[in-house]
Design a protein around this nucleic acid. Structure first.
Length: 267
DNA sequence: ATGCCGGTACCCTACCGA
């Protein structure tokens, strides 16, 4: 049987309703088979299902909530929703897991929105930072139980490598790049042997940003960070054939502060 | 180096994002 290709995208859209036309443009131009969205900022009742339906993305798993957070996985190949983990243990909608049904036996696709963690990198002084670390701990416990080929994607809100930020020394105490978060993400990686596809295909220290602040002085000076990730089980990672960052979306009118990533697999 | 930008909810200011 001829091998099939599957392309998977992830994008923190920062309100799917406000930017539904940008999502439609992205899908039309990039043609991913599956798209994982984060920060949809809507309950499922107001999710723009009809737009995706018309574009051929007839399979959807939406874990939304009113106003904040929320994730959705939409697909033009069959998917089956598996679960909605609450790794922050407070009810926020930050995960949806699906099985992507392919002729080759399928894969598990986990869509996550890891908490940002507030401003102060100290769990005693800042409960949000503690919640971020607790989320990573629960994710790590879960990773040790993964048995099927799995792809975990989304807004990790951590830039792990020195070259994942524009100035390592300047950001070492800034939440998203602190040693404590980087170590917690490293423990997660080790728990399953995840392969960081962004760095498989765009090796360090090459520039590989996925987020730029809305503050103009950061945008203008290209002071970005690599906060968005696609990590694969080892055997699945061997099948990734191409990976790209669609940076142009950051220059569209009223853009998200994150840009999409796309990985293609030869299954 | 800074929510100064940008979003939602709800009632216009508060809260959230990283």
């Amino acid at each position: 049987m001829a091998s099939q290709t599957l392309s998977v995208a992830t994008w923190n859209i920062n309100s799917v309703r406000l930017r539904i036309e940008q999502v439609a443009r992205f899908l039309t131009e990039q043609q991913p088979d599956v798209l994982c969205l984060q920060e949809i900022k809507t309950a499922e009742a107001l999710f723009p299902h009809e737009v995706f339906e018309q574009l051929g993305y007839t399979h959807r798993a939406v874990h939304g909530q009113k106003g904040y957070h929320g994730v959705a996985t939409i697909s033009r190949v069959p998917i089956r929703e598996m679960n909605r983990h609450d790794w922050q243990a407070n009810g926020e909608a930050r995960h949806v897991g699906v099985e992507v049904m392919t002729p080759e036996g399928g894969l598990i696709l986990e869509n996550v929105y890891i908490p940002a963690g507030g401003d102060i990198p100290d769990p005693e002084a800042n409960p949000k930072f503690g919640q971020k670390l607790a989320f990573l701990d629960r994710m790590t416990q879960w990773a040790g139980t993964v048995e099927r080929p799995t792809l975990i994607v989304g807004d990790f809100n951590i830039a792990p490598l020195d070259c994942d930020v524009y100035d390592h020394k300047a950001l070492i105490k800034v939440v998203s790049h602190t040693p404590q978060e980087v170590a917690a993400l490293g423990a997660f990686g080790a728990a399953h042997g995840w392969v960081d596809l962004g760095r498989k295909h765009i090796p360090a220290p090459e520039r590989n940003y996925s987020w730029w602040s809305y503050r103009s002085y950061w945008r203008d000076k290209d002071q970005g960070r690599r906060l968005d990730h696609m990590w694969a089980s080892p055997a699945l990672a061997d099948k990734s054939s191409a990976h790209r960052i669609v940076e142009e979306t950051r220059k569209w009118d009223q853009p998200s502060d994150h840009v999409p990533l796309v990985t293609e697999f030869a299954l």
